[in-house]
Every structure is written in C-alpha cells, then in structure tokens.
Design a protein around this nucleic acid. Structure first.
Length: 276
DNA sequence: AGTGCGGCCTGTCCGC
DNA sequence: TGCGGACAGGCCGCAC
C-alpha cells in the first residue's frame, strides 16, 4: 500500500512525463472515489500544463498556472505513464492525456484514493492544512517528537502514524521503524524518553530513505510510474512476519491489533522499557 | 483536546 | 468447484 516512499517513487516516476506537456483530454470513468471527482474536471484541465509535481505527505500536487490537482493513492492506488491508446481495465478510473500522446493513468481497485482540483494554495486545503511535518526534513527530530508527546497517552505506534504529528508514516514503516529503534509499539507516547525518540526519528528517516531507494514496497499491486515494482519488501523485518522468527534474536514475532491495524514486533528486542 | 471507532471499497484467502 | 464471510488498510469525521 502506498506510503510515503511509494508516493515519492510515483512522483519521481511521473514527473518527467507530466511536466511541460499540454493536457489534451481527461477521461474519468469512475467518479466515486474517496471523494467524488468534480464533473467539471475534464473541462478544467484540458488545455492546461502541469509545471510542477510536488508531494506533501502522501498527497501528490500537480500544479498548473491556475490551480492544483491533488492526488492521493489511498490504499491501492497507483499512477502509470502509458501510450494514450493503452486499453483501460476495470479499475482504471482516470486518464490524463497529453499532447505528446502519453497518458497519466490513475488506477485504484479499492477506491480509497482521491483526485481533487483546487484553485487555491493546496497547503490551505482542508485535507492538507493540518498536516504535521515531513519526516525527511531536518525539523523532524527526536526533540520534536518528545515535545509533542507530552501528555499523549496513546501507543507510540499510533502517535507516529498520526499525520498531524508527522506525515507519511503508515502501518508498514511504523512497524519497521519501531523494530529498528527497539521500542515496543504499545508503549505510551508520553513514557518514551528523549533518547528513545532521538533513535526513533533516526530510524524513521533511515527506513523511509532506504525504501525510497528501493522504489518502495510492492505488496500486491504497487508499481511506480514507469510500471516497475518496489523491492523494499525484501528488507521488511517485522511487517507481515507475525509468528515467524525475529531476524535478530530468533524469538517468535508477536502480532497484535493496535488501533485496528496489524502490529508486529519482537517482545525480546523491543522491550527495554519494561511496560510491555 | 485527545482518543476511539465506523465507514468507505474490492481482492484474496479460508472453511464448508 | 462455488460461495459466504472475514480480513486488509488510509484516513476522515463523528462521538465521547
């Protein structure tokens, strides 16, 4: 499922094909995504040109001179660059066709994704304005996490998955980063020491950067803009490995539910702060 | 304000 | 082999 590394991989993959090419036609086959696609979208976009492909958290921002197309991949969404006459399949919901006969295609079987148009600064959009900081920016640090964790009683895994705190850390990488930082996912956010948060911030950056280098994690159907799968799955140490042996100490990895999400950790390696 | 949970979706897998 | 049902999950929006 697309988390920050997958979205960044998509961004890099589509960027060279999207920037500077005039939009000729837009085809919307399915309007009902997470939010309804604006019926006017084809008219709005036709004739315009994207000049930037940016990312904020897991949102892709395709800027034109009059507004921004906001794309979220949800759980199962993907973007690909294809020839414009490439036959559309069942879950191919949106095609943006350029004057050079290339097509940017949005595919999303579960339709948790979104394609939205705004004429305002997207940073002020209701979906984006409350987002926390980017994990790969310098301001994201152990001090930052420690400061925001004061009086927060939720499990640290849910804390780092909260997009008002830090964006882009989804279930896979939250599990992986906590394993890397040797912190139990169940620990209350306020009980974690500054030193632990410094390690955790480091681990989050390290894991996300490594995943981006590998082109993301392909679980079922994630492909980059150029149609390549991601290879980070080979590096996952806990996610999807419940019941299997810890790669470090061979203890059987424990799988629990935290905030309705599957959580996998090693009770041996991630237990230094006894509250387990 | 912080926390918890329902709901939106469909492909996959499991048991009968 | 076919079918129902559980499950997966990002994240908004509501309830407490």
């Amino acid at each position: 499922m697309p988390e920050l590394p997958e979205v960044e991989t998509s961004r890099r993959g589509i960027e060279p094909y999207v920037i500077g090419h005039k939009i000729q036609t837009v085809i919307v086959r399915q309007h009902q995504l997470r939010w309804k696609i604006d019926r006017q979208l084809p008219q709005i976009l036709s004739g315009q040109t994207f000049h930037t492909v940016a990312r904020r958290g897991k949102y892709l921002l395709l800027h034109t001179s009059s507004g921004t197309l906001i794309i979220h991949l949800g759980m199962s969404g993907s973007l690909r660059i294809l020839a414009k006459d490439h036959v559309a399949q069942k879950h191919d919901h949106v095609d943006i066709i350029f004057a050079n006969d290339k097509c940017l295609r949005f595919t999303d079987p579960r339709r948790f994704g979104a394609v939205l148009w705004t004429e305002h600064d997207p940073i002020t959009h209701p979906l984006l304005k409350k987002l926390g900081i980017e994990p790969l920016e310098q301001e994201f640090s152990g001090d930052y996490l420690y400061r925001l964790a004061r009086n927060r009683n939720i499990a640290v895994k849910l804390f780092i998955m909260n997009h008002q705190i830090v964006v882009g850390v989804g279930n896979i990488y939250a599990n992986e980063a906590l394993f890397d930082a040797k912190i139990s996912p169940k620990l209350s956010a306020k009980k974690i020491t500054l030193a632990q948060y410094q390690q955790l911030a480091k681990s989050i950056k390290k894991i996300l950067q490594a995943a981006i280098r590998q082109g993301g994690t392909t679980l079922r159907n994630f492909l980059s803009g150029e149609g390549k799968p991601g290879y980070f799955i080979q590096h996952l140490k806990v996610y999807g490995r419940g019941g299997l042996a810890c790669t470090k100490c061979k203890t059987k990895l424990k799988e629990i539910r935290l905030g309705q999400r599957s959580t996998v950790y090693c009770i041996q390696c991630q237990s230094q702060s006894r509250a387990d």
